[in-house]
């Protein structure tokens, strides 16, 4: 047996069916959001009504799983009521934790619902012990979701310097820009990631065949990539597009369309004191959720038992079949 403490496996759900799938596949907790702009995955057809969330919480609790409500976008002045109502609804439903990014909404939860467990969203961009401790001391935050920019040794140092739990992303999309501080989408589309909860809205994405049998990908009026035949590509975002500079042509200026996969680093993360391992992908299908959650369940259980898991299936599921350990492995990623 290993002496590693088995971490909580936190899984995404964009629909009630996905939530049930995640719970059945072995998730310890599932995170999801309400329909509309109050969360950072405000996509058409995605997310929960209050009734759906209430039923989902009951389903999860019956199977000893928890549900976390992501209310993690930034309400603009004059429209905070919707966000407050979402917090009230989540508390009313009996949610296990609310995940907040906005400092004002953190205050609202702490003042209006002092007994409600509060998590700090990755969208808050709290990347240092000092920043995290500010939220812990002011708003009694119980867990921080760390930005995907720290190495494992840095995570360990953060862990040793803060008074709350750490949740770390281990799989899925890798956002290149500091979360909660990116207005690239708004610059091009007029829709704000922070204020409206949408990055690269599908309504503004366009694929246009070009003369070389490739596809030019556009967001709004700007070409953000050109995909030639046979190339696989992930969902188009500005930070994973190809551009020209004076020094380098036709290259991924920010990051390639690759996915984060930290399966191999799981034991290190567990040793670093990470309480919860988070899988990205509330926009993903049930089939995807089932495969990824089951595979991670097996991997975490194997590592905790001191065994070496089979991770070939997880690698096949990564975006464009390319994977990375991102910032977590070494500083050279930066």
């Amino acid at each position: 047996m290993s002496d590693l403490i088995k971490p909580e496996l936190v899984c995404p759900a964009g629909t009630p069916a996905s939530l049930r799938t995640a719970v059945d596949a072995g998730a310890n907790s599932v995170y999801c959001g309400f329909k509309g702009p109050t969360n950072a995955r405000n996509f058409p057809g995605l997310n929960f009504s209050k009734k759906e969330l209430s039923e989902s919480v009951k389903y999860a609790h019956d199977k000893d799983a928890m549900v976390l409500a992501a209310i993690n976008s930034f309400p603009t002045a004059g429209r905070t009521d919707l966000w407050k109502q979402s917090v009230d609804d989540a508390v009313d439903i009996g949610i296990d934790a609310v995940i907040i990014a906005d400092i004002g909404m953190a205050k609202y939860v702490a003042e209006q619902h002092p007994d409600q467990r509060l998590h700090l969203s990755v969208q808050a961009g709290a990347s240092s012990p000092e920043a995290i401790n500010f939220y812990v001391e002011r708003f009694n935050v119980k867990r921080v979701v760390l930005p995907r920019i720290l190495t494992v040794p840095e995570i360990k140092r953060v862990h040793d310097a803060i008074d709350c739990e750490i949740e770390a992303f281990v799989f899925g999309n890798i956002g290149m820009m500091a979360e909660g501080r990116c207005s690239l989408t708004n610059y091009v589309t007029g829709i704000s990631t922070n204020m409206d909860g949408v990055c690269s809205p599908a309504s503004h994405v366009d694929y246009e065949p070009d003369e070389d049998d490739g596809l030019t990908t556009r967001l709004g009026d700007f070409a953000i990539d050109c995909i030639s035949c046979g190339e696989t590509a992930g969902y188009p975002t500005i930070c994973k597009g190809r551009y020209d500079t004076a020094h380098k042509k036709n290259y991924y200026a920010f990051e390639e369309p690759i996915s984060l996969n930290l399966t191999r680093l799981l034991p290190d993360l567990m040793k670093a004191g990470v309480t919860a391992l988070k899988i990205e992908g509330r926009q993903r299908s049930r089939a995807y959720i089932r495969s990824v959650v089951s595979a991670f369940r097996d991997a975490v259980d194997a590592y905790a038992a001191g065994e070496e898991p089979d991770i070939t299936e997880l690698i096949a599921l990564t975006e464009g079949h390319k994977e990375t350990q991102g910032a977590f492995k070494s500083k050279s990623w930066r």
Partner: peptide
């Protein structure tokens, strides 16, 4: 010019095949 995004990675260094360090 408006600040639109921040990152942990240096894109200036990347354009010159270097890293932040």
């Amino acid at each position: 010019r408006m600040s639109l995004a921040l990152s942990a990675r240096c894109y200036h260094a990347r354009a010159h095949n270097r890293t932040k360090d």
